[in-house]
Nucleic acid binder design. Structure first.
Lengths: 139, 139
DNA sequence: TCAACAGTTTAGAACTATTATAATGTAGAA
DNA sequence: TTCTACATTATAATAGTTCTAAACTGTTGA
């Protein structure tokens, strides 16, 4: 077993019990150098590749939602038959390649600050997300 | 029967046969003064309110997809268990009120042009959509 | 240390939105 | 009118997600 104390701390500090399933999912999600996008289906595959102990599908769903609520994951707003999540929780945007059905990060520095010159009374802005749809350039 | 020649023309000109189901759906979608957002479920309800002749659910799905492909409707990228469509096909953006689960248009004029300073080689930009999530301001 | 309890996991059922199927119907052309 | 390709329909099938309720486990406090 590697050093998972960081994940145990992370979980405990946000009121989530550090169960072995949650720690394993943390490893799969947060151990990699680069952040990435995933669907539940893809996450389940990554998990089975990295462990022999099966984690129930329901637990994967529960955990992803818990992590999303705690701000450890972001859900990407996109029209798809599946939900897409992002381990990159910093402020950034996305290209969606409609030809390849592929999501690509756009660094926040590559997008001029989006100015919204209107407000809804009594509401505060929680996030501003830009989705840039692209397709093959056949010109 | 009201004057539906505009819809018959519209359908015919885009290679869709003007069936009575499609004409009825055009009426429900495009007769109102204001544009609006809807889910398939909501559209089915609107249809049943405005006619006695039942339109099959499959036809509603087929028609909405056909209209979307022809550019008469836009699908709104949002995380939801249902697809949201918009009869406003002009370039504009959305607030999503997470408290009320409500979508609100943002006029294009109220958003400073979004500048994306990066590109994907071989791909061209098809659309740039901004989703502003808001919640109740409890301050 | 250990009992107790609240939180967690689990397999599988249930649910819901959407798509596929295949038979019947219909608009438009000849 | 007849023919044919396109549309509609009810229903079945599919797929992602959530629910259920029983078994399990981390944590607390005696």
């Amino acid at each position: 077993m590697l050093d998972n104390s960081q994940y145990i701390e992370k979980l405990r500090s946000s009121g989530l019990r550090p169960t072995k399933q949650r720690i394993k999912i943390c490893e799969v999600l947060f151990n990699s150098e680069k952040t990435f996008h995933f669907t539940i289906n893809e996450l389940v595959k990554r998990i089975s590749k990295s462990t022999n102990e099966k984690i129930s599908l329901a637990t994967v769903y529960n955990t992803v939602h818990a992590f999303k609520n705690k701000g450890y994951l972001k859900e990407i707003p996109i029209n798809s038959d599946q939900s897409y999540f992002d381990t990159n929780t910093s402020h950034h945007h996305h290209f969606y390649d409609e030809t390849q059905k592929d999501l690509i990060d756009i660094d926040d520095a590559d997008v001029e600050p989006v100015k919204i010159n209107t407000r809804i009374p009594g509401k505060k802005i929680k996030s501003v997300e830009v989705l840039v749809k692209v397709e093959d350039d056949k010109s």
